[in-house]
Every structure is written in C-alpha cells, then in structure tokens.
Nucleic acid binder design. Structure first.
Length: 267
DNA sequence: CACGCCTCCTGTGCGC
DNA sequence: TGCGCACAGGAGGCGT
C-alpha cells in the first residue's frame, strides 16, 4: 500500500509524538504470522525512542541500547493513537500515558527490533537503493544500474535496489511522465536521466499532498492524502492519455497491475 | 548473484 | 441474493 510519500507523511506526524518517549509496554495479537512479522519486537519494552526516521518505505526509530525499531506498513498498515479496533495488531504503551496502535488488515506490516544498522533480518532494507530525494540518488549511477540489469524497468524499480521507496503507483506515474514502457529492458542514458527526474517530480508532488489514499492509507490523524486526484496514469486504464488522448492500457507485470500509454510509452 | 514465480493475509467489487 | 473469482498500494523465500 504505502510508498515513500505515504510513509514520509506518517513519519512527519509520528516523529514529534514519539521523540523522547519511552515504551512501557507492548501488546501484540496472538496470530501465527506475528513471530515472523514482528521480529524481536518485544525488546522495544523499556526503551526510549530517539526519533522517527525513514529509509524508503521503512520507518526506523533508533532506541537506546544501540537498537532500532523498524516499522513497515505493508499494504494496509496504519498508526493511530488511542484507537483500538478489530484490526489492531500491536499496541505500544508510551510513558506519556498514550497508546500507539498499529492497525493492519492484511498483516503484511512489520515491527522489528534489530541491532542498530544490522538489517540482515530485513533483506530489502539491507540492500536498499539510495533515497530518491537525496543527493545520493545520482542520475549517472542510476543510468548505470539500468544499463546493467536485464529486468524490465518496472519490476526493477519495484525491487527497491536502484532507488528506495518506489511502489506500484509511483512507478506507473514516473514511467508515464518519462515516456518509458514498463516492460522496457533497454533504458539508455538519456531516458534514464528523464526517469530520474520524473521519479523526483512525482514523489515530491505526492509528499506535498501527503500521499495517495485509495482506501486503506491514512495518516496518524486519520486524514486521507490528497494526491489521488492528481494521478495521471495509475488507476486510469481505459481513459484517454492526458498527453495524447490514446486510451491508457492495463497489463499485468510481475503480478502487479500496470497502466501505461501504448502510444507515448514505447518499448 | 540475479531473476521470475509463488506465498503470506483479509477484504472488496465484479460477473454470473 | 449468493457464489466464485480476480484483484489490492509489499516483501520474503524458493528454485533455476
């Protein structure tokens, strides 16, 4: 569900609430998925949260004792304060008397405690590409990565390796903006630079609008993101391309719905 | 190591 | 109305 702009919006709300707070208790529901999804989570008890940071779609909160709490919203994860509900998977009791509730209908979300910087238990985080909105996301290196892979460009973006935080929605949006076919296996330097710029544009705009809400994604306040009505490709299959008027086409690529313009985006 | 496929889970919307 | 199926914004594990 949530991609970088949604996770960043959540981070900005959580950070001032959690910074300096100590976790007094943790409740997790007794489902068999929990041990797998909540690696060492109970070690958060008694620890103080320094702040809430982010890498790609992962929220990372440094704790005292050289530990880190790593949180991933999966497809349907939401954080709320003091709002118990039937899909509550975890509840952190804080030293200011409030409860932070993790709601997650599909149970793909994760709460893991790891030794600081040791992301072995979280392979995608361990091999995560550069932050797209930082100077580490370099167009020349990005072009090099695209030149070296044999994967179609969209699944490569979704792998989180060439760049962090891009999911299904913003991959479709950026590829449309850069006029690159999602199945393209040959993205040369010129188109790579265009894609680099498009990713930054699409993600920056989405952050300004506090993310895209279709159904599940909500901020900590419960508010929806405002970006959905600005999407140009994703979710608009069958509608005219905003650039050329050709009906947008939907295909399945790596098991994910993919919308693109068959005229603007050539392989 | 890299890639493609399948799986985890639950709810919703659609066609028949 | 009821049923079955495809699909949903993600990542991990496995076989090749």
């Amino acid at each position: 569900m949530p991609e970088l702009p949604e996770v960043e919006s959540v981070r900005r709300q959580l950070d001032p609430e959690l910074s300096g707070r100590r976790v007094l208790d943790l409740w997790t529901d007794p489902h068999p998925m929990i041990p797998r999804q909540f690696h060492r989570a109970h070690e958060v008890i008694g620890r103080k949260i320094a702040h809430v940071g982010r890498r790609g779609k992962f929220l990372i909160a440094p704790l005292d004792g050289s530990l880190e709490l790593v949180m991933h919203l999966g497809m349907t994860g939401v954080f709320r304060f003091d709002s118990s509900d039937p899909y509550m998977r975890a509840r952190l009791t804080l030293d200011d008397g409030r409860d932070l509730v993790f709601r997650d209908v599909r149970r793909f979300g994760r709460l893991a405690v790891v030794d600081a910087g040791d992301y072995g238990p979280i392979p995608t985080l361990a091999h995560l590409g550069p932050e797209p909105l930082s100077v580490d996301f370099d167009p020349v290196r990005f072009a090099g990565a695209l030149a070296r892979t044999s994967s179609p460009v969209k699944p490569f973006l979704l792998s989180q390796r060439p760049v962090a935080g891009v999911g299904n929605i913003y991959a479709d949006e950026a590829l449309w903006l850069a006029r690159i076919h999602p199945l393209s296996r040959r993205v040369g330097p010129r188109r790579a630079v265009a894609l680099h710029a498009s990713l930054r544009e699409v993600l920056t705009q989405a952050i300004e609008r506090e993310g895209t809400t279709f159904r599940d994604y909500r901020m900590v306040t419960g508010a929806s993101g405002r970006n959905a009505s600005f999407l140009l490709a994703y979710g608009h299959a069958g509608h005219p391309c905003p650039r050329c008027g050709t009906p947008l086409r939907k295909i399945v690529l790596g098991g994910r719905g993919t919308t693109y313009c068959p005229r603007c985006q050539r392989a």
